[in-house]
Write a protein that binds this DNA or RNA. Structure first.
Lengths: 112, 112
DNA sequence: AACTTATGCATAAGAAAATTATGTATATAT
DNA sequence: ATATATACATAATTTTCTTATGCATAAGTT
């Protein structure tokens, strides 16, 4: 994960997108899912994840539901209505960001 | 620039890439170039740029050359040999990051 | 002549978001 | 028995940025 610096600022968007796909997830599940879909490329640390989840909840973008499974507690998070709208915005911004960075990597202004 | 958070961590890569393209540039020129190629989407602030340039120089990735133009001082930065190698690495990492984020935005793991 | 905007560099204070290091606790595999 | 996996949490520190400020010259405006 040598490119971990680039992920700074995109954690919230990743969380929101995963919740949009999976309806509800708990913290540990999110770390595993990200590890899986990025083939180990990205490992979300707990010290980043849990504060981020708490903040998204405080902003009213996520709802929480506790559930006990195998005598272990899970905190399931799901998008609120506000969270669903915000997710769309964040994804649009991410797409814009990616387009901009593509422009910088692969500049038209240097070919001719 | 509503997506400014996403740019966290990518400023160094942007600087290095521009210097790879343009051989040598000075700080103010970099801010204008970025504004130009991103069509105003991204505005690099001086408070971020100058410390970043100083750090890249301290790391041995950039060399500095002072030049006086129209009675105003410019600090021209150019890649060192080490900087050129590091730029290649950073760009590879950026491409990996973009691929990963594309995977998250447009997940294969949810279609079937 | 006075004033504003552009050019050019720099740093300090503060905020935001991460890493790293802990801490607690149960379940499972060796 | 011991280590690894599961599950959450927070505190200290670091990194990186924004915002505010400072200095100085050139060019354009009223």
């Amino acid at each position: 994960m040598g490119n971990s610096k680039l992920y700074k600022g995109s954690l919230n968007t990743i969380i929101l997108k995963l919740l949009e796909e999976s309806d509800k997830m708990y913290g540990y599940e999110i770390t595993q899912k990200v590890k899986e879909i990025t083939k180990g490329e990205l490992n979300i640390t707990e010290g980043a994840l849990y504060p981020a989840l708490h903040k998204l909840e405080a902003e009213g973008l996520l709802d929480v539901e506790m559930q006990k499974v195998d005598n272990r507690l899970r905190k399931y998070y799901k998008l609120t209505e506000k969270g669903t709208k915000e997710t769309a915005n964040r994804l649009t911004e991410l797409e814009e960001y990616i387009r901009t960075m593509q422009t910088i990597i692969n500049p038209k202004w240097s070919i001719s």
